[in-house]
Design a protein around this nucleic acid. Structure first.
Lengths: 185, 185
DNA sequence: ATGGGATCTCTAGACGTTCGAGAGTTTCGC
DNA sequence: GCGAAACTCTCGAACGTCTAGAGATCCCAT
């Protein structure tokens, strides 16, 4: 039952750095918010996995489809290279991925007319319908939740998630730029 | 440049259901919050992927290690079966996963003394050190962000993320319980 | 007590995704 | 025009995952 090391202090989880001291209301809040964000990400993955499975794709395929729509809807279609960056995939895997999605009728390949090395990915009707099925119930749930918050409260939430997101991206970039550090392996 | 089909309505993204109408401040806020949460999850995956890669594991291994510590730190060590549920893995994959982590010295297998069918997963020192290296910088960043919020504001944020998390889990469970629905394939 | 069903972990083979290196085009700078 | 750089695609190998089933152990009804 007891964690190994530091015998005895069973709930001194702060010593492990994973959790924060919860002995003040504020500390407890911060710990719970961080934990909830972590769980939210995990559950979102589960939802994506389950939904993708129902429709004959895997989680990566669904992520890719969303990224393709995301990019195209803001007027800047994505290329295979950048899709690979977003999904942490090598170029070979991206080709296979696009082949699958194209074969299934979810997206199309278009040559860029100005730079003919590039391929632009565009969603097909089938892919649009699938993404809509995925996002609609989530949007409805978001509506239900946000209905319980006043405008000023949503401003606070927005400020918070923006700051957390920016900080996490900083961390991600820092990890990328410091690639060679070895541990005590 | 134009999305295919439905010629002309280039920016009518609301028609796709992915995004919400942004013509009011409140609508814009909600859309941005939802988008930021989505990006946060994706970026968290990237961070995990990058960190795991540096230490000779894959993203699944790191998730598993975190889940094992998470469970043990609250005094209820996890079993291979439940770990598979949390990570969306089959029993066979879980065995391979545990073998990898045990071989690398990150976790240990213990037989449950009261129910000897079960195996309890416990982290080893090596795994604890790794998890600490992963979480410490994230905790520091969380501290920096939360420093810019008053207690009442954190209460609002907590209420929001709790509600969003609960709603998402409801959706996940609904997906699970309605497994057979087929689309117009 | 004892037998049957349920629960849990593990094994084995096949499948599919991913990776890594390299080839083939097209573009841009000199 | 020529060489370097950017981008996508091909191919074979490696790895993680899945499915099906075997082997233990526990629980409960008889």
């Amino acid at each position: 039952m007891l964690p190994p090391g530091r015998g005895g202090k069973q709930r001194d989880v702060a010593a492990h750095g994973m959790y924060r001291r919860r002995d003040t209301r504020r500390g407890w809040l911060i710990a719970e918010i961080a934990a909830e964000l972590r769980r939210y990400g995990a559950d979102a993955q589960h939802v994506g996995h389950a939904f993708a499975g129902r429709h004959g794709l895997n989680a990566t395929d669904l992520q890719a489809l969303i990224a393709v729509m995301d990019a195209e809807l803001v007027g800047a279609p994505i290329t295979p290279g950048r899709l690979g960056e977003q999904l942490n995939l090598s170029s070979g895997s991206v080709t296979a991925l696009i082949d699958r999605l194209e074969r299934a009728g979810h997206i199309r390949r278009d040559r860029d007319t100005s730079d003919r090395r590039k391929v632009l990915l565009r969603y097909a009707d089938r892919g649009a319908a699938l993404a809509m099925d995925f996002f609609r119930p989530l949007g409805e749930r978001t509506d239900q939740v946000t209905a319980g918050f006043r405008d000023e409260e949503l401003e606070v939430v927005y400020r918070f998630v923006s700051a957390m997101g920016a900080s996490l991206r900083e961390h991600r970039d820092a990890l990328r730029d410091e690639p060679a550090r070895r541990r005590t392996d």
